[in-house]
Amino acid sequence: MAKQIPYVDYLVLGDQPHLVANECSGCGARFFDRRNACAHCFGTEFRTVDIATDGELRSFSIVTFAAPGVQVPFVSSIVDLGGTSVRGNVINTPPDPDHVTLGMKVRLATYVVGTDDEGTEAVNFGFEPVL
């Protein structure tokens, strides 16, 4: 199997792909980027926590006009994964309002974005409808 690299460092690959967050040890606020401190309580200690893979579509937009090089259409969405909000594309379903609806149940899914010269596959995540 080809060597793989996650598209973002908060995506953990393997048998059960999932997202991880930096959770503030003081207040529990969760972040998906490298932190200097907590934006909520200003604490500086964080632990890595696993994020649920099943959730609900809280908002979306079907983007049909984007910057050069960005493939359209795609469905941008905000998903509530067990109380933690995450941004990602809705995938594995037609990008139209008949197939993408507010409140729909979704789960994390991964796909290969591309392969570099060394044969490493970049793997991204998205959210697919739970039928």
């Binding site: 973002v8 983007v63 984007a66 493939q71 969405s77 905000i78 990602g88 594309n89 974005v113 995540f125």
Partner: peptide, 9 residues
């Protein structure tokens, strides 16, 4: 991230 992890526009 724009276009592959949601939108930034």
């Amino acid at each position: 991230l724009d276009g592959r992890v949601g939108t930034e526009t």
